[in-house]
Amino acid sequence: MSKPSAEAGALDPKGLIREAYRIEGVDAAQCRSIFLDWALSAPMDQDTNAALSALLERYGPMHPDHPMTGVLRDGLAGSVRPRRRGGWRARPRSE
């Protein structure tokens, strides 16, 4: 087993993503739970998109069919900032 690089350690300080890839028989629901723990423990100033991209670059090619790879891809695709759709300003005025 290789020691994680400094960059991977900075992106995954608790080693949650790394360990998810090592768990034999892990399913997508468990990977989503691990991902949520990783996301909640990430530093506030961390660029989540960049971190997810780097983690995918590191683990995705070695484990293309692993459920965690799918969860990381979903996290990257779902990180688009939502647009405001509604509220009092969008309501028509009644005169």
Rank of each mutant, 00 (worst) to 15 (best):
P67V: 08
G9A: 07
R22P: 00
H66S: 06
R93Y: 06
A28S: 09
L55A: 09
A10L: 11
E57Y: 03
G60N: 12
H66Q: 08
L56S: 03
S79Y: 09
S2C: 00
E19L: 06
M44L: 14
L52T: 04
R85G: 08
E95H: 08
M1W: 08
G78H: 05
D37F: 05
Q30I: 04
A50Y: 02
M1T: 13
E57C: 05
P61T: 04
G87Y: 09
L52E: 08
M62R: 15
A10C: 01
E19W: 05
Y59G: 02
R89A: 14
S79P: 00
D12Q: 03
A77W: 03
R81P: 01
M68F: 05
A54V: 03
A20V: 04
D47Y: 04
T48P: 00
R91C: 11
A90W: 07
M44E: 15
R81E: 14
M44Q: 15
P64A: 07
I17Q: 03
D37S: 14
K14L: 15
R22K: 14
Y59I: 07
M44R: 15
R93M: 11
F35C: 08
E19I: 02
M68H: 00
R22A: 15
I17A: 07
M62P: 00
D74V: 03
D65R: 13
R84G: 05
L11A: 12
T48H: 04
P64G: 13
Q30C: 03
M62K: 14
